[in-house]
């Protein structure tokens, strides 16, 4: 971890601990490499009442490089059924890939994903879900997504 990423993550953590935006809670942050946060869509939406868990992995080049963000999929957690979220938890969102900017932060990512879920009119998986999940790399950062649909 370089000095800049350590310091920045410490600040972000302090900020998150002092108070998260509505619907977002810090579940676990034992170190400065992996954090778990839960997000929930507040208000009327197709995900009403569902709580999802996000895993953030920060590399040594954070915030210059984007963090790896996936929905946790295990016995107790499921990925939301959304046209940009694969059933293995990988998210197809431009801000996590080519559109990442170092001014974004953990809470900014959470808010973006929250609004991505909130604006979803119908629960469905991406059309190529099976194909992707079969061949998906371990980290979504190694997949080359094509971002084309900015309606949801």
């Amino acid at each position: 971890m370089s000095a800049i990423s350590t310091k920045r993550l410490q600040k972000e953590l302090a900020e998150i601990r002092k108070g998260c935006p509505a619907g977002i809670t810090l579940l676990e942050a034992d170190d400065l490499a992996v954090w778990f946060l839960s997000i929930e869509v507040l208000g009327e939406s197709v995900y009403k009442g569902e709580v999802f868990s996000l895993r953030f992995k920060f590399g040594p080049r954070y915030p210059i490089e984007s963090p790896e963000v996936v929905f946790v999929v295990d016995n107790t957690h499921q990925a939301p059924i959304h046209p940009h979220v694969y059933s293995n938890g990988h998210i197809c969102a431009s801000i996590l890939g080519s559109e990442w900017s170092p001014v974004l932060s953990t809470s900014a990512v959470c808010i973006t994903l929250q609004s991505m879920l909130a604006s979803c009119p119908k629960k469905e998986r991406p059309t190529d879900n099976d194909r992707y999940v079969r061949t998906a790399p371990l980290s979504p950062k190694d997949a080359r997504f094509q971002y084309h649909d900015d309606t949801v």
Binding site: C92, D128, L138, D142, Y147, H148
Partner: peptide
């Protein structure tokens, strides 16, 4: 592994 091209919606 690193060469996966993914389209969210192939119709587009």
């Amino acid at each position: 592994e690193n060469e996966v091209i993914v389209l969210c919606d192939s119709s587009d």
